[in-house]
C-alpha cells in the first residue's frame, strides 16, 4: 500500500461524490458516479483486493451506469430547482 496514492484517490473520490450530489445536470451526475466507481475500483486494487475491484468495475462502472442512463432516457435530463 502506498499511502500517498491512497490519500490522493480517496480525496478525489470525496470530491467526485460531493459533485455528483450537487450537480444540476443528471447525465453529468451519472457520469460522475461512473468515475466514482472506477476510482473506487482503483482503490480496491491498491488494497490488494482484486476480486472486489473486478466486481466494482463491472457492476459499478459498467452495468449501473447503463441502467441509470436507460432510466434517464425515460425522464427529464435537468433537475428542477
Amino acid at each position: 500500500m502506498i499511502w500517498h496514492l491512497d490519500l490522493t484517490l480517496l480525496f478525489l473520490i470525496v470530491i467526485i461524490a460531493i459533485a455528483a450530489i450537487t450537480v444540476r445536470d443528471l447525465l453529468s451526475a451519472i457520469m460522475l458516479l461512473c468515475a466514482y466507481s472506477f476510482l473506487m475500483a482503483v482503490v480496491w486494487v491498491e488494497m490488494h483486493s482484486v476480486d472486489v475491484a473486478f466486481t466494482e468495475a463491472a457492476v459499478g462502472a459498467g452495468a449501473t451506469t447503463a441502467f441509470l442512463i436507460a432510466a434517464l432516457s425515460r425522464t427529464k435530463r435537468w433537475e428542477k430547482k
Binding site: V50, D51, A53, F54, T55, A58, V59, G62, A63, A66
Partner: peptide, 17 residues
Amino acid sequence: GPGGGFQGGVIIASSFV
C-alpha cells in the same frame, strides 16, 4: 483467480448493452 460467475455474467450482459 480474480473473477467468477457473477463478474463474468455482468461482463457478458454488458456486451448485450
